[in-house]
Amino acid sequence: MAEVLLHIEQLSKSFPMPGGRLLTAVENVSFTVETGSVCVLLGPSGSGKSTILRIIAGLETQTAGAVRLRGRPIAGPGRDRGMVFQAYTSFDWLPVGKNVEFGMKINGVPARERRERAARFVDLVGLTKFIDAYPSRLSGGMRQRVAIARTLANAPEVLLMDEPFGALDAETRWQMQELMVDIARDSGATIIMVTHDIEEAIFLADKIVFLSSHPGRLREVIVPDFKPAERIRNKERVLELPGFGQLERKIMRMMREEGERV
């Protein structure tokens, strides 16, 4: 197995509730994320999967435990952990190209290098024709492509995605999933994605971290090893693999059990 990039160690998070009680969202969750792999956090609502991702991003502070990136504990948000959100985050006042340059600009990348890198990543997400367009002219799927390109162009060590395709229609969603396969294969990015879409999880993941709900605990780490080592871009070809349906049914059963437990 490849080298470990991120250690999530006995992570817990509780929120104070009105009335002085504590709500435990995440309890004692540990897993690792390997360099260049796609790790998917999957679970029913209330399993704390977004909270875990936000702690990794440095946007929330854990109550106990630690997140280590290459052994160093993380403290606050930083450019080494870029994040793509479900809500659209394009900067409406900047054209697509300048949106993608934004992270590099504030981090002092020289103008020429910035433009070249931006052009490359705009091309990677298939928006070269729209590089000078304002985001308000783009569809939802295209805006998410801008957000992905902007984050990747900033060269983070890990790409964090919080239900990035949750607001998209079904067709756009599988196109974006196939784009993510391209990105994982071509850029070698390390990706952690939160989703509640079982099919999306199995299609994209090298490792599925399945969380149970109320409180969010680690239930099982699933490696979909029915998939071949090289990534397959074509979604129906992955759906055709004999192991797919079996794993999908297994995870659906786990989801159902979580639902019945509440």
Binding site: L59, P77, R79, M83, T89, W93, G103
Partner: peptide, 24 residues
């Protein structure tokens, strides 16, 4: 989300306010 995007792109307080919140 706009503010958090800025922070995770490596922006400090000043850049977040002047380059993201103000134009927004």
């Amino acid at each position: 989300e706009l503010i958090e995007t800025a922070l995770t792109l490596g922006a400090g307080q000043r850049v977040t306010v002047l380059r993201v919140m103000l134009p927004a």
